[in-house]
């Protein structure tokens, strides 16, 4: 028998360094391992975050993969555990298991136009990939971020998007479902932006992340535009208890969303999207 591996079900304590409120219900935490050391991950991967006594949730990593000194998570408080996460302050400790799951294939997209399509907090799991792409900007054709949010108040990473928009080498298009206040930008679903984006569909890789319905339509819009299925990647959400293929909850057709995903190449799962209650 080989040496038994470390139990993947036991978390590692991390201390929160900084908490930033992004939206009324969304916040970004920066944390470091309590015992010191680095944290390496690939863009698109997630961690199981454990709040003492309350429970555990899978949350995508939203920081820069090049910076191993700090672990960054952006979370929306929608349930008991995420609300408990929301209540944590700098100095508090939480448990981390991970990183788990597949990654956005940023390097495999070298030489292509790269189109990110994000909806709502779906921008968070894409951000590490955007960072990585920008770190290798010269390896891509056009790099475009298409982002849809519910209202202007729901736009995540607003300042960062502004900053990106100011760059010449990155196109950022944002749309909202409902214009409020002084919003002078696009109104309509994010899929409309796909039709407008000026990229070469035959030579484009696209990473899509958002609610499942949005991804389905975004993928359809990309396909309509001429992007091949095997150049589209999506990030899928299912119930997860272990994060590492042991608990069975996240099964989706033949896949364990936690380890065969969350990032899937669209051609492999397009059919599954069509099956109800799968």
């Amino acid at each position: 028998m080989n040496v038994l591996p470390h139990d993947p079900m036991v978390p590692v304590p991390f201390r929160i360094e900084k908490v930033r409120r992004d939206l009324s219900d969304t916040f970004t935490m920066e944390m470091v391992p309590e015992a010191g050391g680095d944290f390496a991950f690939r863009p698109g991967q997630f961690n199981m975050l454990y709040v003492f006594g309350v429970g555990e949730v899978p949350i995508s990593i939203s920081g820069d993969p090049a910076d191993r000194s700090v672990l960054v998570h952006t979370t929306r408080a929608v349930g008991t555990v995420t609300e408990a996460l929301d209540a944590l302050k700098p100095g508090d400790v939480l448990g981390v298991r991970g990183p788990f799951g597949t990654a956005w294939p940023v390097e495999a997209a070298f030489g292509h136009d790269l189109v990110f399509v994000a909806g709502g907090v779906g921008l968070a799991p894409l951000r590490p990939a955007i960072y990585q792409a920008m770190a290798h900007r010269e390896r891509f054709g056009r790099v475009i971020v298409l982002y849809g949010a519910r209202t202007p108040e729901d736009i995540l990473y607003k300042k960062e998007l502004e900053r990106w928009r100011g760059r010449f080498d990155l196109d950022v298009l944002v749309t909202v479902d409902r214009a409020t206040g002084k919003w002078g930008g696009n109104v309509g679903v994010v899929t409309n932006l796909v039709a407008r984006g000026g990229f070469d569909p035959l030579n484009t890789a696209s990473f899509v992340c958002g609610p499942e319905v949005m991804m389905r339509y975004a993928a359809a819009a990309l396909e309509k535009k001429g992007v091949a299925r095997d150049n589209i990647w999506v990030s899928v959400e299912r119930n997860m208890k272990c994060g590492c293929g042991l608990c069975g909850h996240c099964q989706w057709g033949p896949h364990f969303t936690c380890k065969d995903g969350p990032v899937f190449r669209f051609d492999g799962i397009a059919d599954l999207f069509q099956i109800r209650e799968l």
Partner: peptide, 30 residues
């Protein structure tokens, strides 16, 4: 398939995490 349960003592100073058999026939499963 298994699920996990987080339990605490009343004071909330001690916590445990348990793994329990689960079934894909429950609604909670998905």
């Amino acid at each position: 398939c298994t699920t996990v349960e987080d339990v605490t003592d009343l004071k909330g100073d001690n916590a445990e995490r348990w793994r329990k058999w689960d079934s894909c026939f429950t609604t909670d499963f998905s």
